[in-house]
């Protein structure tokens, strides 16, 4: 995993793979976006994201974990209560 260099900009990550095409948002595409849930038994989307681990800033790519079990947990925010 690469160490993330630190500048003043707030870094972020994103899905890896093809660029998401800009879409003209019609009612139809809106509904499609709102219902985008993953299916079990299917491959998950790859992503790369910066992060913090044990005193270091890191950059993590999900596909680097192929061959291992991964538990990916989203949560609303740091310093929230639950």
């Amino acid at each position: 995993m690469a160490e993330e260099s630190v500048g003043c900009a707030r870094p972020t990550g994103g899905p890896v793979g093809e660029e998401v095409e800009e879409q003209v948002i019609t009612e139809k595409t809106k509904v499609k976006e709102e219902r985008a849930m993953l299916m079990v038994g299917q491959k998950v989307p790859d992503f790369a994201a910066p992060g913090y681990q044990q005193g270091k800033f890191v950059n993590v790519k999900l596909s680097d974990y192929l061959g291992k079990w991964v538990l990916l947990c989203f949560y609303p925010g740091d310093f929230t209560f639950v």
Binding site: Q42, L72, F74
Partner: peptide
């Protein structure tokens, strides 16, 4: 952006729900 790809990003609140994904060694969502 990643949260959107996983269907856990709440646009109105601007945050991600408590989504938990178990991914196997082949990258398949179990």
């Amino acid at each position: 952006k990643v949260g959107k790809a996983y269907g856990v990003f709440d646009e109105s609140a601007g945050v991600e729900a408590r989504g938990r994904f178990i991914i196997d060694p082949d990258g398949v969502l179990q």
